[in-house]
């Protein structure tokens, strides 16, 4: 099966947040309705970061450049890495990779241990308190399985998002980067082609990775790698100790204290 991907074009995004709303609506994620429930971010951004009930967030980043102040919008959601660190650490196999590249988190299997958040270089999965599970974008796998686009893509009025075969999305993204560079946006880059083995959510970064808050050359957290090393080391350590004690046991069989006294008996004190 061909790999599929979303292509988000920050240069076309108007930050209307329609995708945010549609994501919540399709996936039945509630929003805070109380006054001042969300911390004020100092901008039009809805909330500081993703949370247990929010799988997709449009970030507002202000760029002060030669043209004046410009907004660098960013789509913050799971990138659906080809080498997902979250999947490796999940202790119950709640995170899986579908043939089309989607990294799916099955909330019915999730036990809420938060290891996926700890392992993700982007800290994307968030704990959903009310259900004791982690939550993240599933690329609307229920929709795509029926030949439909992810909800966010379908609703985007600016045409800033597209969904299709990954190689086609990469080609479209690269073509758009060429156009942007021709228009004078020298730092424009396509994110996700090779990062983390190749992502299934690509990003046309009009002002370059850093301005859009994208991690350059992301890697699974070092601590996660250390933990992965510790598991075989633990096995070897325990096996060595048990093996050594086993040998000790065999050599001590038949031990009789009266025959082999301690130092004090040897000294005639016992």
């Amino acid at each position: 099966m061909a790999e599929y991907a979303i292509l988000y074009d920050a240069s076309k995004c108007s930050a209307c947040k329609g995708c945010q709303v549609q994501c919540k609506q399709w996936n039945m994620m509630p929003s805070s309705l109380g006054k001042d429930d969300n911390e004020f971010t100092g901008s039009y951004q809805s909330m500081p970061d993703l949370n247990g009930d929010t799988r997709l967030l449009i970030e507002f980043r202000e760029e002060d450049n030669a043209r004046g102040i410009e907004w660098a919008f960013s789509r913050r959601a799971c990138f659906h890495c080809k080498e997902p660190a979250c999947m490796d650490v999940c202790p119950v196999g709640a995170i899986s990779q579908l043939p089309d590249g989607t990294v799916k988190l099955d909330s019915t299997k999730c036990v809420g241990c938060k290891y996926c958040t700890a392992a993700c270089p982007f800290e994307i999965p968030k704990y959903r308190d009310a259900f004791n599970v982690s939550n993240k974008c599933t690329l609307c796998d229920d929709r795509t399985a029926q030949g439909r686009e992810p909800a966010c893509v379908q609703t985007c009025p600016a045409g800033a998002m597209a969904y299709g075969p990954r190689d086609e999305m990469i080609a479209a993204g690269k073509a758009r980067i060429d156009e942007l560079k021709a228009e004078g946006f020298d730092k424009a880059e396509l994110y996700g082609e090779t990062e983390m083995g190749g992502m299934h959510s690509l990003f046309v970064a009009k002002y370059g990775y850093e301005t859009h808050g994208l991690v350059r050359d992301p890697k699974a957290k070092d601590i996660t790698s250390l933990m992965a090393i510790m598991k075989p080391l633990t096995g070897i350590g325990i096996a060595a100790v048990v093996g050594g004690l086993g040998v000790s046991f065999l050599t001590a069989i038949g031990y009789e204290r009266e025959d082999m006294p301690r130092g004090d008996k040897k000294e005639g004190k016992q």
Partner: peptide
């Protein structure tokens, strides 16, 4: 002592 308990005399 662990591996040759029969021939090792331990101190008090």
């Amino acid at each position: 002592y662990l591996f040759a308990a029969k021939t090792t005399h331990m101190p008090k």
